[in-house]
Design a protein around this nucleic acid. Structure first.
Lengths: 242, 242
DNA sequence: TGATTTCAATGGTTCAACCAATTATAGTTT
DNA sequence: AAACTATAATTGGTTGAACCATTGAAATCA
């Protein structure tokens, strides 16, 4: 009935990462904990230091541990921050598996829901952070620093996701903004006089807890941005064809 | 004005992965391409084979290359499939950074939008696949095979996301289903007589292209499931406290 | 006390060798 | 000629020992 599973040639370093992952799942290892040194771990696992290092390297890339040099160095368990998931999605964008219009569409879909949830859950501290962010964006706009304004604007979305209090949406939002950043770097920054007034309105909706209004504002702003972006892609592509 | 950036102690293997990543971005390397052997690459980069292997290992974990043994083996560029992003989010769940209620909430938010988009873009082939999936689920239910039914149900969401034709949402959906799978494995499968009738209705909405109705059906089904799940978590937790 | 030097621990890298899986190829049998 | 088989070549996987570079704490000195 059941199909055979392929004989998995388990590599030594995979066995090691699995053992460490399982300790993480059982919370026998927690953020901030330090693993023994490479030399000692190699001894415990009965593998060479090179093999152990491949295991640590793969855990590092997966975002589970951080390796520090020096006398008090070693492998430290990282706080689960989702950098690996973010990097994974960014890689997909690099590979061309994600087109700009897929990215903007996903931002519209998810941004609206994030705005809605943020309205329901934001605290005074969240609003304070958002307020400061908008002020910083306004200052950057006034100073004509489009690069800085772009960076601050990415942060707005990140802050809003954090106000929505859902780690899944936080990681997804971070990934979307990281991809957007790469995208904008490629096609160039674009001043846009619609964004800041919209941002102000959105902030007031969030402050007032008006979820529907916030979602609508976010959607319309992102759709307008989408048109800008995709037009810019066409330009770039046309100019790029030589 | 600008803050100093910390002096980055670039490690040799990072330099290597960056060079390969940049070739990927420029499409100088494409899916299916084979990199030279480890020994030759080590020579080209002027590093030892161990260092080169750490670089390849990290690319492998990032889901960019696949390593095969044997005479025709080597490092092959993988099709961008998003496994790394999926694994990254799954790790966050393992680490406890994502609670079950965060997961179900994200599924509700994203599932509804996926259903809506799928209605607008599904082809006859998509509907055919979904139809077969629902039949398989009904068969598994009739046979009382809850494990198989769960697996088939995860596939339904994956298929629906593919019908929505957005790779970002596909990867996100895959990640959500992977987390759900781990979650269900932990708390146990639960027969639920609501799911299959709802699935039928949803399929008909998708077939008819009724996006709003499909989104509503998806939302209400997931909310019902959410209540089941979270109740189950409480049970498990209570029993687990000893 | 406070600055400086010394030193031990740790990750980063190298080298040389051998193991294990895989496949192309030459050889053998039918 | 076709099918099977043994061999060899290629490749990733692993080992062990050595050395370098960084870091921070302990020892030393002014």
């Amino acid at each position: 009935m059941r199909e055979f599973r392929p004989v998995a040639t388990r590599r030594a370093f995979e066995e090691i990462t699995d053992q460490i992952r399982s300790r993480l799942s059982r919370h026998a290892l927690r953020a901030g904990d330090r693993l023994p040194s490479e030399r000692e771990l190699a001894g415990q696992f009965h593998v060479s230091r090179n093999t152990l290092r491949e295991a640590l390297r793969s855990l590092e890339i997966a975002g589970l541990v951080e390796l520090r040099k020096g006398a008090t160095g070693g492998a430290f368990i990282k706080e689960g921050g989702g950098e690996a998931a973010v990097a994974g999605l960014a890689d997909l964008f690099h590979l061309g598996a994600i087109r700009p219009k897929d990215l903007t569409e996903a931002r519209i879909v998810i941004g609206a829901e994030v705005a809605r949830l943020a309205c329901a859950r934001r605290t005074a501290a969240d609003i304070e952070l958002l307020e400061r962010n908008v002020q910083a964006a306004e200052a950057a706009t006034a100073a004509g620093d489009v690069e800085r304004r772009a960076a601050v604007n990415y942060d707005f979305h990140r802050l809003l996701a954090r106000a929505a209090r859902n780690p899944v949406l936080i990681v997804i939002t971070d990934a979307l903004m990281e991809m957007t950043r790469h995208f904008v770097e490629r096609v160039g920054y674009m001043p846009n006089r619609y964004v800041m007034p919209s941002r102000r309105r959105l902030l007031e909706h969030v402050r007032a807890g008006k979820g529907e209004a916030a979602a609508r504002e976010m959607t319309s702003m992102l759709k307008r941005l989408q048109r800008f972006h995709l037009a810019r892609v066409e330009e770039t592509r046309t100019k790029g064809d030589r």
